[in-house]
Each structure stands twice: as C-alpha cells, then as structure tokens.
Computed example of a mutant assay.
Amino acid sequence: MTDHAHSDDAHSYRIGAVARLTGISVDRLRAWERRYGVVETRRTEALGRIYNRSDVERLTMIKQLVDLGNSISSVANLTDEQLKERLQQDSRSSHRSDPFTTLPVRVAAYGETIAAMLRASLDRMPGLHLAGAYQHFDDFRRQLMSLAPEVLVLEYAGVYPDTVDELDDLLQRSGARHAVMVCGFGRHDVFKALRERGAVILRSPVSLEELELACRYRRDPEASTPPAATALSSDLGEGIPPRRFRDEELVRLASVSRSVECECPEHLITLIGSLTAFEAYSANCKNRNPDDAVLHAYLHRITAHARALVEEALENVAEMEGLID
C-alpha cells in the first residue's frame, strides 16, 4: 500500500483536477481505487473524494508504469519508493525514471496575472526558481536568452493559430524544455497544435499547486501529450462519455432516495433524465438535419459531458448518503 502520509493536506484536489494532472480518466481512477486501493483518499461532505499532492505524484508514477506495459495489479500496491525504483530499473523507461524533477525548476513567466501571482507566492512554491516575470510581452521576449529558463509559464486570455508560431519562437529563443500555458479560450485544433509543441495547457484561473506541478513535470520527449494537458475544461474532446447509470438503476435510486431526508439525489436523477433525453434528441437531429449537423453534433457532445458530470455528482452524493456501496 502507499507509504506516504497525508502530510500535505493544505493542498487538496478533487477527482477532476487529479484526472487533469495525471492523465488518468475519472472512470479509470475510480476503478483503480475500488479494485486495487491505489491511494488512500478521504471524503468531505462538501467535496466528496479528496486527494493531496502526494497522491497526485504517486498516481502519475503508477500511470507511467502502466503505460510502459506493467499491469496495474503488479504496481498498485507498491510503496512510493518501490515505484520510483521500478521506474529506474525498467529497461524500457531508462530515459524517464521519475516524471517529476526533485530540484527547483528555473522558470520565466509572462502575463499580467501570472507574473504578479508568482512574485507574491514564490515562497509557497519551493519547487520553482523564478528567473524572471514580465507583464509586457516585448520585455519578456527580449530577456529570454539571458534568463535561460527550463520552463516557460505563459498566460493568454485566448489562443489563436498565430499563438502556435509565437510559442515556437519563444521555445527556440529560450531553450526551455517545455511551456506551461494558462489559457482562457481557443479552438480545439489550436490547443492540439500547442500540445504537440510541448505545451502543458491549464485553464485559467489556476491554483499555485497545479501550476507548480505542471512546471516540475519532466516531459518525456517521446510522449505526444503531457499528463497535465489531457483534460482541459474547455476542450472536452470528441468522444461521447458512456452512461454510468442504466435507466433501471436510476429508477431504483430514485425510490431509495425518498427514504432519506436529503432531496439532492432525487433532483440529480431528474437532471440526468432531462440531459439524457436532450442528448438523444440532439443526436437524432444531428442525423436527420444535414444543414445543422455541426451545431447538433456540438450540442450532443456538450450535453453528454454535462450528463456525465451530473452522474459523477449523483455517485458521490449517493455514496455519502449510503444509497450505493
């Protein structure tokens, strides 16, 4: 089992943030916890499952070993030290022994909010060494060569096709190994192109811990997508998430939930029913109306992800109320 205590409780993450930082899907993470006890999570009434920083680093190592061909059952119950040793010993991963650097990372930052945040909070981020932080792009670009950063931290309200060329220029000029981009909005193809160039994408606003972990991640040069970039909130992907509850399971939960004082499960079940109905309607419209195919495909995808989020909320509430195991 794990050998780390919850000594960093001040930094807590919900399951969605953990999925974003580790690259493990929420469904797979739940399955690994249920079947193998990969981490010792805690629960709060308000937030459900809670993870700390050590959990994130442990899960990242486990994910990397599984990606290298190890079965989850063979690594799930190793201690943190054993996981590190396994990564170092694995001949197939000799070039990527530990996904996180242990020494402070030299960072150069650009962006009005990010620059101010790093200057004010650097003492709370021991894993980073701030080489320079600039609020004006021209000043930042001009000083890059002298700063010699390992990682660039870039803040953009929106990203566009020319942002990709700008990133190429900044990486080449600085010699940084990768960039962490704190972004607001942008197109799917632009985010994809940025990731392919080594950018870790985080959605604004970002927490200090999330930013530090993304900077400390030592990107495998053979990997096409770094872990922290796989689940940007505004970039849900093209897939349709499967349903977590069958209709008969929702009916059963609705009947059981009437026996408890909290009405939240019943309200969530109603929301899921409405979203599922609209999801089916959007899919049908997408197939029957070629002129509106793009719009309805978008509505179908967004509704499906909204349904999946409400299903996750229902699962958490139902577990806390003792309605499901």
Rank of each mutant, 00 (worst) to 15 (best):
M1S: 14
D3G: 15
I15W: 00
G16Q: 09
V18F: 00
T22G: 11
T22Y: 02
S25W: 00
V26K: 01
R28Y: 01
W32F: 08
R35G: 07
E40T: 14
L47G: 11
I50D: 01
N52E: 15
L65H: 09
D67F: 04
N70R: 15
S71T: 13
A76C: 05
T79S: 15
L83Q: 09
D90R: 02
L103R: 14
E112A: 07
T113S: 12
H129G: 07
L130C: 02
A131V: 11
Q135N: 08
R142Y: 11
L144S: 01
P149N: 08
P161K: 10
Q172C: 13
R173F: 03
S174I: 01
G184A: 14
K192S: 11
L208Y: 07
L208T: 14
E209V: 12
P227Q: 09
A228P: 09
A231V: 05
L232M: 11
S233F: 08
P241I: 05
E249Y: 07
R252Y: 05
A254L: 11
V256N: 11
S259R: 13
E263Y: 12
C264F: 01
E266M: 12
T276H: 00
S282Q: 00
S282P: 01
A297H: 04
Y298R: 13
R301Q: 07
L309N: 10
L309A: 06
N316Q: 12
A318N: 03
